[in-house]
Write a protein that binds this DNA or RNA. Structure first.
Length: 863
RNA sequence: GCGAAUGUGGCGGAAUUGGUAGACGCGCCAGACUUAGGAUCUGGUGGGGCAACCCGUGCGAGUUCGAGUCUCGCCUUUCGCACCA
């Protein structure tokens, strides 16, 4: 065996072996329990970042552990390959997005391989290739047929210079992020997917998803936003039988209504604005709105009276209608009933415009005063000053109001949702073409199935002046499938979230040219363990759940939840260093270029830039990002220390769901530990083969090390399989190795015990450092390759001990450690404890009032 | 504002069911080996006393024989949502 640990050679050898043996190619085998372990597939941005490495290492550790525990494991990988960055790179470099994307994929695939992940590359999929996205188009057509996909005019952010639609994140302070031009709100026709049809089921099913993190379930529930209340009608005289509809969860406050407020876009507002230029101007101002979404919540409430009145649905009294900038057209009916006494926003509004405030809810022990808002004003209570409803509690009052208004045809109970339908049209080139043809004679015509896929041209280079498909005659010009006349293709492409909404299904049958899915989906799905970042807690996971439900309704799959278990790993953080330029702008420096010195006495840290030796400021430890220039390139790490060190560090530095702080010293520590393990095995095998273990003839010290080995084995299996705390599993193996180092090796049986301990250590770490484990397993004389081994089970006999350490407390304070027989009764434990001199000292002359014995752990004497 | 998480040595973190606080690692200190070490090995390392012992898990109360862990009230930091009627 080689004395030195040389990761480059060892890792190449192990990876070559797995390739040769096709170790990770998964085959359907109904006789074995399957385990589908999936990490969120990456966007091919060019290089792997540390977040990827953390994500995929967690997945690989679980996959390898499950495999060795008898599961038929599928761990596939693919590429979320459509999207905006490719277009930006194309503009910057003059290279078509397709070329840029495919080159990135090739590079990142090599990186993934160099990290030793046990991925089944035979199932690799790439969403920007027609073999994949043709099924987006096919399913979209099915959704059209079922009415789940539909065409509607929607409001978008329009950059007038780039002639393109911007995502909300691309609008900065009301201006386009590239051009700096003022963004306009434009109404254009878009395709929507009716996710709201599944809102109730998407929400209700969350209750049963106990293997998803609670916070993801809460975030989804809030996003879906179910709200139960009453839709009330306020009749008015605009138009024939006009009724202003409002939604409220507080129908019990109906008698406190002193005004109604409608959104600027509300038909009643627009009607009132005709012939009222002041109001029209105000509506325009509201429509523009604040640039930043968050300012919506804090901006001053403004309004203007329309001059119109509606009639109260219960009392019939006239109620003035106002336009309010705090009323959202997109929620409910775009109008609210104003109850200033019991709603903070209405209160603010009424105060400002001197509208009456009428309290109608009494809360016991509280006295209402309209002078200032108190948080309890919106609490539930009992109706007062409310005519027939006086004395009723919340639910009774809501029921009564719903009944009375409904009798007049002016009310009904209603559940409404925050969730909106999903607009998927993007006026972008680098995405999946929406399979629609526009014909002068026939209108909007879906592309017939037999003409799929609508292939996206791959040689276009966007120049920033709108969608290049609009200038691509070969793509644009087409014959109408219905009438044969000259027609034009739809140039909008699909939101890239469409691509990721079903890729996990396609991995089961990525090679099928004839169908989107086949019977193999039944075997592999649902995904047993899905692993990814919390940033996808809402959109991606919600869309995927929606698509699976649609496919189930189509009969294509038999389940509705695609991911049985979800794990969201924490972010990778690193310190940021910067200098403030004279202009006030911050210039960030990569931590690799900064030298940090620590004063030993004061713990004061000083950071300076290597290149000029001058000081830089530390901005604390934050998420690694391009903008903060605090990323560490995983490739550098792999080149210098090897994949195993990178993997070990990531798994050891923090529990997987928490944030992980980057530490160069920590990486060194991980490297050092592998070297120690290597050396321990080297020294052991250099002395020749170990003898057979004679379990019956061991000394107490030998039995103790053996017990330690098997306790470690049990703990590691629990940490991997149940707790998912890889950091504590690694710590346990480190402790075992420390015990091995301390163990005096005098006799042949010592070598046998150490052989066993080293085998257990190597196996325990094999999911984390698979390359080193692969080599060490062989060196320890095992003939089966590590990856094909079955996980060792702890020997019950080895775990047993005849004695146990107990702690003795006097009045709850630790005073002694005692060793007693495992089967000692309370009397024996008591007398051993009382015989201890230190225990006697603290009991002193006091009488023993109470004595608590926790078998095998502790004894507390209360004096 | 609402919701969730979080707070433990110089640092990352451990303590799984209310039962030895600080495992394991980093850093630091001392020593060994060495021409040398930023390699390796050994020992030490929460604070105060340097002994017995006392004090210590964000702050304040409480429950308990016993609280990092449970209850109540505050505070910090982070994340998510944010005029949702």
């Amino acid at each position: 065996m080689q004395e030195r640990y040389e990761p480059a050679a060892i890792e190449a050898e192990a990876q070559h072996y797995w390739d040769q043996q096709h170790s990770f190619e998964a085959k359907e085998d109904p006789s074995r329990p399957k385990y589908y372990c999936l990490c969120m597939f990456p966007y091919p941005s060019g290089r792997l970042h540390m977040g990827h490495v953390r994500n995929y290492t967690i997945g690989d550790v679980l996959a390898r552990f499950m495999r060795m525990n008898g599961r038929n494991v599928l761990q596939p990988m693919g590429w979320d390959a459509f999207g905006l960055p490719a277009e930006n790179a194309a503009m910057a470099n003059g290279v078509p997005p397709a070329k840029w994307t495919l080159e990135n994929i090739a590079h990142m695939k090599a990186q993934l391989k160099s990290l030793g992940y046990g991925l089944d590359w035979s199932r690799e999929l790439t969403t920007c290739l027609p073999e994949y996205y043709r099924w987006n188009q096919w399913l979209f057509l099915r959704m059209l047929e079922k009415g789940i996909a539909y065409l509607k005019t929607g409001v978008v952010n329009w950059d007038p210079v780039d002639k393109t639609v911007l995502a909300n994140e691309q609008v900065i302070d009301g201006r386009g992020w590239r051009t700096g031009a003022m963004v306009e709100k434009r109404e254009i026709p878009m395709y929507y997917l009716k996710i709201t049809a599944y809102a109730e089921d998407l929400l209700d099913a969350l209750k049963d998803m106990q293997d998803w993190p609670e916070r993801v379930r809460i975030m989804q529930a809030n996003w879906i936003g179910r709200s139960e209340g009453v839709r009330l009608g306020f009749p008015h005289s605009v138009g024939e039988g006009g009724i202003l509809h409002v939604f409220t969860t507080r129908a019990d406050t109906i008698m406190g209504v002193t005004f109604c407020a409608v959104a600027a876009e509300h038909p009643l507002a627009i009607h009132a604005a005709q012939g009222n230029p002041q109001l029209a101007a105000f509506i325009e101002e509201c429509k523009r709105g604040p640039a930043v979404e968050a300012e919506l919540a804090t901006q001053e409430k403004k309004g203007m009276a329309t001059g119109l009145y509606v009639r109260h649905p219960i009392s019939g009294e006239p109620v003035p209608v106002w336009v309010g900038n705090y009323v959202l057209m997109s929620y409910g009916d775009g109008a609210v009933m104003g109850v200033p006494a019991h709603d903070e926003r209405d209160f603010e509004f009424a105060k400002k415009y001197r509208l009456p405030i009428k309290p109608v809810i009494a809360v016991p022990g509280r006295v209402y005063s309209a002078a200032a808002w108190e948080p309890w004003y919106s609490d539930h209570g009992r109706c007062v000053d409310s005519g027939a409803y006086d004395g009723l509690e919340y639910q009774a009052a809501v029921d009564a109001v719903a009944r009375d208004s409904s009798a007049k045809g002016l009310g009904e109970k209603r559940t409404i949702w925050r969730l909106r339908d999903w607009g998927i049209s993007r006026q972008r080139y680098w995405g999946c073409p929406i399979p629609i043809i526009h014909c002068k004679n026939c209108g909007v015509v879906p592309v017939p199935d037999e003409q799929l896929p609508v292939v996206l041209p791959v040689d276009l280079v966007p120049d920033g002046s709108g969608n290049p498909l609009l200038k691509c005659a070969a793509f644009l010009n087409v014959k109408c499938p219905k009438c044969g006349a000259d027609a034009r293709r739809e140039t909008d492409t699909m939101d890239t979230f469409v691509d990721s909404s079903w890729y996990y299904l396609r991995f089961a049958c990525a090679d099928n040219d004839h169908a989107m899915l086949d019977h193999r989906v039944q075997y592999w799905l649902p995904v047993d363990q899905y692993i990814g970042g919390i940033e996808h807690a809402i959109l991606h996971l919600l869309y995927a759940r929606f698509w699976t439900r649609f496919l189930k309704d189509m009969g294509a799959v038999s389940f509705k939840e695609p991911f049985a278990r979800l794990f969201t790993q924490g972010m990778v953080l690193n310190e940021v260093f910067f200098r403030k330029a004279d202009s006030g702008r911050l210039q960030y420096f990569n931590p690799a270029d900064v030298n940090v010195t620590v004063d030993k006495a004061t713990h004061r840290r000083e950071a300076m830039l290597r290149s000029d030796g001058k000081q830089v400021e530390s901005g604390g430890v934050v998420t690694m990002s391009k903008s903060k220039n605090n990323g560490v390139d995983p490739q550098v790490l792999v080149d210098e220390f090897g994949a195993d060190t990178a993997r070990l560090f990531m798994m050891f530095a923090a529990p997987p769901e928490q944030t992980l702080e980057w530490s160069d010293e920590g990486v060194q520590g991980a490297f050092r530990f592998i070297k120690r393990l290597w050396k321990a095995v080297y020294e052991h095998v250099s002395a020749g083969p170990a003898q057979r273990l004679e379990k019956a003839m061991l000394t107490e010290a030998q039995r103790a090390l053996r017990r330690h080995s098997h306790q470690t084995l049990a703990k590691v299996a629990d940490d991997f399989g149940r707790r998912r705390t890889f950091n504590t599993a690694i710590a346990a193996v480190m402790e075992l190795l420390n015990a091995v180092a301390r163990h005096p090796q005098t006799g042949a049986q010592d070598r046998s015990i150490v052989q066993e301990a080293l085998e257990i250590a190597v196996m325990s770490l094999s999911p984390i450092i698979p390359h080193a484990a692969h080599a060490l397993w062989r060196e320890l004389g095992r003939r089966t390759a590590m990856i094909d081994e079955t996980w060792l089970q702890p020997d019950e006999q080895a775990l047993q001990s005849s004695t146990v350490q107990m702690v003795v407390q006097v009045n709850g304070k630790l005073r002694a450690h005692i060793t007693v027989a495992v089967d000692a009764d309370e009397a024996a434990i008591r007398s051993t404890a009382l015989a201890d001199a230190n225990v006697q000292k603290f009991i002193g002359t006091g009488a023993i009032r109470k004595l608590i014995v926790v078998r095998g752990k502790l004894l507390n004497i209360v004096v």
